[in-house]
Simulated scan of single mutants.
Amino acid sequence: MIISEEKKTEFYEALVQRNSQYDGIFFVGIRTTGIFCHATCSARKPKYENCEFFLTAEEALLAGYRPCKRCTPLFYPNSIPNEIEKLVLAVEASPEKRWKEADFRELGIHSATARRKFKEIYGMTFVQYARSRRMGIAFKEILNGKKVIDQQVLLGYDSSSAFNDAFSKIIGRSPKRASLSIVYANILSTPLGRMISISDEKYLYLLEFIDRRGLEKEIENIRNKQNARILPGVTTINRKLEEQLKLYFAKQLRQFTIPLFLQGTRFQMEVWSLLQKIPYGQTVSYQDIANLLGNSNRVRAVGNANGANQIAIIIPCHRVIKASGKLGGYGGGIERKEHLLRLETESENE
């Protein structure tokens, strides 16, 4: 969620004054140390330009920040159950880990208990928490484009080999060298939050909001299907994409001209083709698309194909709504779908 400059100034004042009324209201990421804190953290206060403010812990984690050990922002405002504290510490010990049932059993904790209690305390499940911390490591590397040793220190790894091992586990291990291709991942800032793009010099393979559920699987599929190694970097396609997204959100662009690489089933490709034909500022229903495909009973299948779209905004799955007029689902979150539709409608009416 975008925070206004006025709010940022207010939050910074609260941080300097260690105002306890703001604990849990916002979190502050410190760019120079790579940690995020409460307003009342007793550590020396950073300069304003070194602060990045977030409304949720999940956003801070996805931005690549790790919890401060001094103010322990994840242990507020509730009294944290022992099993939750144990899980948080376990994630920090191996943030690149993908948790399985056996891992919970090893700690003597039931996964359902972890899921329920994390949701109650943090507003996100344990899997979301672990994933956010894990992906934040990769996103930090992509976003900053700094030397590995810099990221190693910021993210709390003791050696470069440990960092490299973690990064490869998150983004995906190196594919077979035969016919190896290289694609580049980059982070883009938009009014609706950060997005990740994956491209080479010819095509855009993926454009998603970084908090989208299932993003890791999408990245893994691209790596496997393209036999590609994914590296942080900027391509010509990415630069063009960034320019066009800025124009789109400024209501100055209605049609994207980014070459896309799409790979799916025949049915998915047919649905995605129809999505690209929906006029700017207009909506159609899932039922409409099913009818156009010649089978009015395939509404659910259309919805699934819509959800499998990996090119957000450019392939405008946000323009598909329920026949009742309700918005329906959206991989980037219903609030973003509503914002995109409102932006396009307002642009049409201006």
Rank of each mutant, 00 (worst) to 15 (best):
I3T: 12
E6T: 15
E10G: 12
S20M: 10
Q21C: 05
Y22M: 14
I25C: 07
R31S: 08
T33E: 05
E49M: 04
E49Y: 11
N50S: 13
C51T: 13
C51N: 03
E52L: 06
L55D: 01
E59F: 00
A60Y: 00
A63R: 03
Y65H: 05
R66M: 12
R70I: 14
P73L: 06
I84D: 05
I84K: 08
L87D: 06
A90N: 09
E101G: 10
R105G: 14
R105V: 14
I109L: 10
A112K: 13
R116V: 09
E120S: 13
I121W: 12
A130F: 14
F139I: 00
F139L: 11
K140N: 04
Q152L: 04
L154W: 11
S160F: 01
N164S: 13
S168K: 15
K169F: 06
S179H: 12
S179N: 15
V183E: 12
G193Y: 11
G193N: 11
I196C: 12
I196K: 15
Y203G: 06
Y203N: 08
L207I: 12
E208L: 08
F209S: 08
F209N: 01
I210T: 06
G214H: 05
E216I: 09
E218K: 09
I222E: 03
Q226F: 10
N227W: 13
R229P: 03
L231T: 12
G233T: 08
V234C: 03
T235M: 11
T235L: 08
R239K: 11
K251Y: 02
R254P: 06
I258M: 01
L260P: 01
F261V: 00
G264T: 02
M269F: 04
S273N: 15
L274C: 10
L274G: 12
K277W: 01
K277N: 12
I278L: 06
I278C: 04
D288W: 14
I289L: 09
G294R: 04
N295H: 07
R300I: 15
R300V: 15
N306E: 00
N309Y: 02
C317K: 07
K326I: 03
Y330A: 09
G331K: 14
G332H: 10
I334D: 12
